[in-house]
């Protein structure tokens, strides 16, 4: 099923998405990858506020290449999500409603997705030039010293993603390959 959805995600939209849905996202998302997640976890452990309130938001696991003059961003495809598995359940429990990345998630993350009515989307890995066309603007909002790993606010338009893990506990990375598996 193909859908167009606004981000930040409403609770209703997040709960309505199912593994295998092809979705075009429009609105605001925030980038964060390994180093930014580590800092956010450290901030939470010290009882500090996060630079971006996760509630209702979508995090895109992505560190762009530098933008050429006149462009919003450089190449901007997803990074492997499992490296953020250690941090994701805590953010989901704080209201994070969606994640965009690529690759498998741990059972703990999938449980947190179900528990919180959230969703994990995959963008096509290694298609950073194509995906950059769907990013209208990019602004660093925290941890600027981390360079490509800083937290950025992105305005995206019709950004193509596929629902991999949904709030019913479905996982497209398990169900889709099973259909084409020809091993004895």
């Amino acid at each position: 099923m193909e859908r167009k959805i606004r981000v930040p995600l409403s609770a209703e939209d997040a709960r309505s998405l199912r593994a295998g849905d092809y979705v075009y996202l429009t609105g605001t998302v925030y980038t964060a990858r390994d180093a930014a997640h580590k800092r956010m976890a450290e901030a939470l452990s010290r009882g500090e506020e996060l630079p971006v309130d996760p509630d209702g938001n979508v995090i895109y696991y992505m560190g762009p290449s530098p933008a050429r003059e006149g462009r919003a961003i450089g190449s901007a495809g997803p990074t492997t999500a499992s490296r953020m598995d250690r941090y994701a359940p805590q953010l989901l429990d704080l209201g994070l409603r969606g994640m965009i990345g690529k690759g498998k998630r741990s059972q703990a993350v999938k449980d947190a997705i179900v528990r919180n009515g959230a969703v994990y989307f995959a963008a096509v890995g290694g298609a950073g030039a194509l995906l950059s066309h769907c990013i209208r603007s990019s602004e660093v909002v925290a941890y600027e010293d981390l360079g490509t790993e800083a937290i950025r606010r992105l305005e995206i338009e019709d950004f193509p993603v596929i629902v991999v893990a949904d709030c019913e506990g479905n996982d497209l990375y398990l169900s889709a390959p099973a259909k084409y598996n020809e091993e004895k």
Partner: peptide
């Protein structure tokens, strides 16, 4: 696989954009 074919089509399009607009094929250079 229809979805697989679609992904592979996007990769072709990605290569075209990368070369024409000088945007790295993948952000992980």
């Amino acid at each position: 696989s229809p979805l697989g074919k679609r992904v592979l089509g996007q990769l072709q399009e990605n290569l075209r954009i990368a070369g024409e607009e000088m945007i790295p094929i993948c952000q992980d250079t």
